[in-house]
Design a protein around this nucleic acid. Structure first.
Length: 372
RNA sequence: GUCACCAUGGUCUAAUGGUUAGGACACUAGCCUUUCACGCUGGCAAUACGGGUUCGAAUCCCGUUGGUGAUACCA
């Protein structure tokens, strides 16, 4: 363990006379060239987000400018380079805030106008860690892969550390170009909240047309084996209003049965379908159960065969004739063909997705189940 | 260790001395509904703590605590 406190250079060579310097150089003694910072007083520089920042000279070091190998240090070279390149604004992370006086002093010593500083807080994964490769997703590409839309990502990032005065949360580039101002930037770091990104992404998805959504979602759906053979265009239209991320279209819960993951293929899907049980048909609100299902399913099969092209009105009429709630018929129908309480769409929508033959096959299987 | 920066609900934020501290996400209750979702309506929830200054403080000052960062002949 070292004792506390950094040791500062004591300016011992500052008092050297020209003759002494020449003699030492001639003798081949190694040397560096340092910045000569005043011993007392304080220095104030301005930052566009932090305002005036004052630091006593006593806290500043006589930094090395030219190393003993004759090469300039990074900080020194940086100032020269920026000035030569005509840099007017320096936008960088807050970690540079405390070294800014060094840069600023160099500009002044050289007789140059310092640039405008804008120091930005990092985006955090949590209170302790910056969002990075190690913590969280990190890159723009990573979020695209996770099914987020370009505009949603940009919009969300803009919301971290900044917000329009009128409270608008969903906006595009044109809006930002008009309303953004550095003065509104937050001085504190912000934690990345993927739940809110999901919500915002969902807002953008709802604005898309079915066609646009289908095109964007297709690459994601094609990665899901058990979706093969289905009308993906139709599935996309059903999913559009409920998906918050493009990867949601392939989310297994939309096609799983009895909590089992069906991420394999259609054959597997049908095998698992056998786990449909009588209990599935019970629904307190619609007053349905396996008994009612056993009574209705033969009719439902007939209706499906006969009125496939007008299935919904036909089922509606059936409920009317039967004297039961529409919801009761549709609940039994939907459960019968999907064996799942949660599906991408309603009863007739699922039927259309599965196709006539498969729908009838499934209804027959459901009838076996409730007849046991 | 020393120095600097930061601090409003779980999260993102608004309110630059006077508001019942506002909005959004999340969560939650209910409604609607062809389940779930969507949508609509309501609810829970914050000025880190302690002192000042002031008629009045989230807001200004000091201290404390907490977080982050900086402390190289590295870039």
């Amino acid at each position: 363990m070292h004792e506390a406190g950094a040791v500062k250079y004591d300016k011992k060579c500052l008092a050297l006379t020209k003759e002494e310097i020449e003699r030492k150089k001639a003798a081949g003694e190694p040397y560096v060239i340092r910045q000569n910072v005043p011993l007392s007083g304080e220095y104030t520089f301005h930052d566009m987000v932090f305002g005036d920042v004052t630091v006593p000279y006593s806290e500043l070091e006589d930094n090395v400018l030219i190393k003993s190998d004759g090469l300039p240090t990074y900080n020194f070279a940086n100032v020269i380079d920026d000035h030569l390149m005509g840099i007017t604004h320096v936008i960088r992370g807050v970690e540079y805030l405390s070294s800014t006086p060094k840069y600023d002093l160099l500009y002044r010593a050289l007789g140059w106008e310092p640039p405008v500083y804008i120091h930005l807080q990092p985006v955090m994964k949590d209170a302790q860690h910056k969002l990075s490769k190690r913590y969280g997703a990190a890159s723009y590409e990573d979020f695209l892969k996770k099914g987020y839309l370009k505009d949603a990502i940009i919009n969300y990032i803009a919301l971290l550390g900044w917000s329009p005065k009128d409270g608008t949360e969903k906006f595009g580039m044109d809006f930002m170009l008009k309303t953004f101002s550095v003065e509104g930037l937050s001085k504190s770091p912000s934690i990345f909240d993927e739940a809110k990104l999901r919500w915002l992404n969902g807002e953008y998805i709802k604005e898309m047309t079915d066609e646009e959504f289908y095109e964007a979602a297709l690459p994601f759906m094609q990665k899901v084996p058990y979706l093969e053979g289905y009308d993906l265009k139709y599935l996309a239209s059903l999913l559009r209003s409920r998906a918050e991320s493009l990867t949601d279209v392939g989310a297994s819960e939309f096609f799983e049965i009895n909590g089992e993951d069906l991420s394999t293929n259609l054959t597997e899907f049908l095998t698992k379908f056998k786990t449909l049980s009588k209990e599935h048909f019970f629904n307190a609100k619609n007053k349905t159960d396996a008994l009612l299902a056993k009574e209705m399913i033969p009719d439902l099969i007939e209706i499906t065969k006969r009125d496939w092209d007008n299935l919904y009105p036909a089922l509606e009429q059936y409920a009317l004739d039967k004297g039961v709630k529409k919801g009761a018929v549709l609940w039994i129908y939907r459960l019968g063909i999907t064996a799942s309480a949660v599906t991408p769409g309603g009863a007739t929508e699922m039927a259309r997705l599965l196709g006539k033959d498969d729908t009838i096959r499934r209804l027959n299987k459901a009838l076996e189940v409730v007849s046991e």
